[in-house]
Design a protein around this nucleic acid. Structure first.
Lengths: 229, 229
DNA sequence: TCAGTATAGTGTAGATACGACACTATGTCA
DNA sequence: TGACATAGTGTCGTATCTACACTATACTGA
């Protein structure tokens, strides 16, 4: 390693845009910073990458440590590295976005004394660093990706009704979809497995529950199938 | 900056996958490494990010220095940071991909003494670091992106024939397209401006030249237009 | 100069996919 | 048991996609 001393080196972080969904809104998980810079401000969960872990491992570790989340859908989003984006020194951040079913996780409980909360993406407080920009890019990516990759399911419980699924798409795409056309299209893809269970505890006729058949999806993809909403 | 000493820091590079096109093949620009590690091996053009320049600036600077390329289409691809991807120490690389019209640039002449050459993407030599993986990701991105963003033009001269444009798509997508359907579709989008010039020096009826109307495209996008091939 | 050749440029018809649209069925609750 | 809330279902007109073949034009070389 005789030559290594000449490399410029930058601090490296990961930040995660964690999306969740309640019945009305698309939500994003934010953490209130405990220390400077930006102490007290809300920020995306994230932190420094250790020198012996991969970027994705770092993102998953931070999600676990800061929000108690594990085994979530996680994909790299974009890398932000403008000089000056961190007031301390040059810090490059590799941003990831995650999709979780809010009901699966008790976020608050898992976060060691630090404030964590879900915010509607339409009503986010002022954020630390350039996290507002990161969130904006993540939202665009989500909107773009949801129509040609079956990732909407990640925001729902494993078993869900077709109406719930339709709502996922309506909220993300910000437009209404026709119920019959939506059902026809999604069912004809053959990615949903009908269960013999129905919704519980609703004050009206209960809807049938479906499950996303990931094995079937992978199999179809090999044959050239393209998901498209 | 009293707290900065505790950050882990990683060496940071950018690498560029530069795509070009000749009449037969999609090409990628490679540089033969002059120094260890991997001295003598082919690699993607790239290098260390300076602490005072943005990531994209670094990519453009490396393209200029190593390949004599400037003002090309350039977009961030993905960030690769597995520990061990560089034998020296932890090096994280932010990969970009670029699209250029090969004819516009005399690559060889501009590269100071180092070997630079275009290779067919189907016939690439063994590459340094994890650059084979980077190239693979870039190819997937290109194939995915070309159908819903008007980037095919970037691989052609400013004025081109419809047949040339069709060929771009056929080569990238690796399938043949119907001539009449292609022309109808692309012309109906209204993104091409017909010039009053025709092809020169061809041994057959000369085709009309068209130009991509970027202003028109941006204007249509604002009104909700989506390019889709 | 004319025959050959290489590509340019053009239209249609059948099949498929998409969007718009409204009523009946089933369960809960008061 | 009646009011309510949502589940679940089919059709038809329209737009879009695919497949397909011939004539026009310019250059080439004998």
């Amino acid at each position: 390693m005789a030559y290594s001393y000449e490399f410029p080196r930058a601090a490296l972080t990961v930040d995660c845009v964690v999306f969740g969904l309640d019945s009305e809104d698309l939500k994003v998980l934010l953490i209130q910073r405990g220390i400077d810079p930006f102490a007290g401000k809300w920020a995306l969960p994230g932190g420094f990458v250790r020198l012996d872990e991969s970027l994705e491992d770092a993102a998953r570790r931070e999600l676990q440590e800061e929000a108690g989340l594990s085994k979530v859908f996680l994909e790299q989003l974009y890398t932000f590295g403008d000089p000056g984006r961190d007031p301390r020194e040059r810090v490059v951040t590799v941003a990831y976005y995650a999709l979780v079913n809010i009901g699966d996780h008790n976020v608050k409980a898992a976060t060691d004394a630090r404030n964590a909360a879900w915010f509607s993406v339409t009503d986010v407080p002022s954020l630390a660093f350039d996290h507002a920009k990161v969130l904006k890019v993540a939202l665009e990516r989500l909107k773009g990706k949801v129509v040609y990759q079956p990732i909407g399911f990640e925001l729902l419980p494993r078993k869900f009704t077709l109406t719930q699924l339709q709502k996922v798409y309506e909220i993300i795409l910000e437009r209404e979809l026709d119920k019959r056309n939506f059902r026809r299209k999604i069912l004809e893809m053959g990615l949903l497995e009908e269960t013999d269970e129905i919704e519980q505890d609703v004050a009206h006729r209960a809807a049938r529950l479906y499950r996303f058949d990931e094995a079937k999806y992978k199999q179809l993809v090999k044959k050239g199938f393209m998901f498209e909403l």
